[in-house]
Design a protein around this nucleic acid. Structure first.
Lengths: 242, 242
DNA sequence: CCCTTTAGAGTCATGATGACTATAAAGGGG
DNA sequence: CCCCTTTATAGTCATCATGACTCTAAAGGG
């Protein structure tokens, strides 16, 4: 069966949706944006935000539109967010009602005020990742894949800054790594690594911020122009000596 | 628009297909499996192999089925091949006839005899990557994404062995890296790196192979159990993508 | 006035790496 | 046969990145 010579009116019909794994770091814990399902199947269970891809939009456009609707952020704000295609889930039977192929996306947000419900009835809220809640459909799997992908990307990209506000301290940046990876990092070594990696962060002149009222005030930085870290900032567990 | 409360008979209809970027290394050049299109649009142009996802199969099952059909390899052989989902292409208008969402997969094969046409009219053949041929639809973009992904995965996985026969020399393995990355690697340093990376390769006892009749015979190795390289084998120029 | 807390500077040993040099073992051309 | 080329394999050495540290600075709280 090839693409050539097929009848456009006789293709197997599929529904195509997007699912969003939206992460943030809040109070030193990884949180994910979830909605509570109001209808069967999985009524009352939590699920990833998402929805249909419309006939005239790409999957990424659908993902940004859904993200804006679920978080209440403006379209222009969402347009600048880091949104990355994770992978596509296509198992027959992943939705008991019909054949649905879903393109999953991952987004990283700084700690924002509670999302305001959008125009529709969706009530998305942040839930701590790894909590007791069971997710609907195969969303547990999607979320696990997304977490693994984010953890891996922190190693060789400057993506961790997407979890931080525009200006941040190195302590806040370090907490992002510690939270996503679930490890503790040596403070001086982390600082040395970040500052010697070209393009990772840029110092903000004159800035300093009290760290929650405790400890010495820290210098402020903003995200640098580099999108790849050379050499990468590897997870501690990932290193095996000869 | 959310997944909840929709009418299963009123979803926007899409066709879902798979596209395959199948690579091999032949004569020190990267080759890709292509088919020549026999019908409009893009009649006479080259395209990636692929086809519809059937109603009762997953996208990966469809990709393996198409790969077996296009290469003439047996289903059992294809079942053991390294096949990886690349990403999904969903731009409206990427196919002028109708709305088609395509899940792209990447496969790596050792240098095999010319593929035998399968049951249908498809005549897939190996073409040197980077040649003058223009590809149909957005397949040029898919192929570029696949090449970048394979190059990146060679850095931190033992995937390069998928391009080699079951037993191979370190020279053959090094040529895989040089061909995919388009660089020359220092022979002794490459050897040291591969042999000191745990689980990358295993020595084959007593084996030795003449390197095309030229030079000292080389020891044989087979792929090791590791699927991740620690630390990674980074490209000299250090090119990464997001 | 100490105590705790976090930021930030610096030290030291080890490991990984790039750039080399040198030797070994094959075939081919005189 | 001797040399030449070719490729494999064994080293050396300097440099850089890193993990595990110690030490000082600057804030707030009892």
């Amino acid at each position: 069966m090839t693409v050539e010579g097929y009848d456009p009116r006789a293709f197997p019909p599929f529904a195509v949706t997007v699912d969003l794994a939206v992460f943030t770091v809040r109070d030193g814990r990884l949180h994910v944006l979830l909605i509570e399902r109001g209808t069967e199947p999985y009524q009352g269970a939590w699920a990833l935000p998402g929805g249909f891809v419309l006939p005239r939009e790409s999957a990424e456009q659908a993902a940004r539109r859904e993200l804006a609707e679920e978080t209440g952020l403006s379209e222009s704000t969402v347009a600048g967010l880091h949104l990355e295609q994770l992978r596509t889930y296509s198992d027959p039977g992943r939705d008991p009602r019909m054949r649905v192929v879903s393109v999953a996306y991952t987004a990283l947000l700084p700690d924002l005020p509670e999302p305001r419900g959008g125009g529709d009835a969706a009530h998305a809220c942040w839930k701590a990742h790894g909590g007791p809640q069971r997710l609907a459909f195969d969303h547990e799997r999607i979320l696990a894949d997304a977490h693994e992908r984010v953890g891996a990307k922190l190693e060789y990209t400057g993506l961790a800054t997407a979890f931080c506000p525009a200006e941040f301290t190195l302590g806040e940046l370090r907490q992002v790594y510690e939270t996503v990876w679930g490890v503790e990092l040596d403070r001086p070594n982390f600082r040395r690594k970040v500052l010697t990696t070209p393009g990772f962060v840029e110092a903000v002149e004159g800035g300093a911020r009290l760290t929650g009222g405790r400890g010495k005030p820290a210098a402020l930085y903003r995200a640098g122009p580099a999108n790849a870290l050379h050499p990468p900032l590897l997870r501690p567990e990932g290193r095996h000596s000869t």
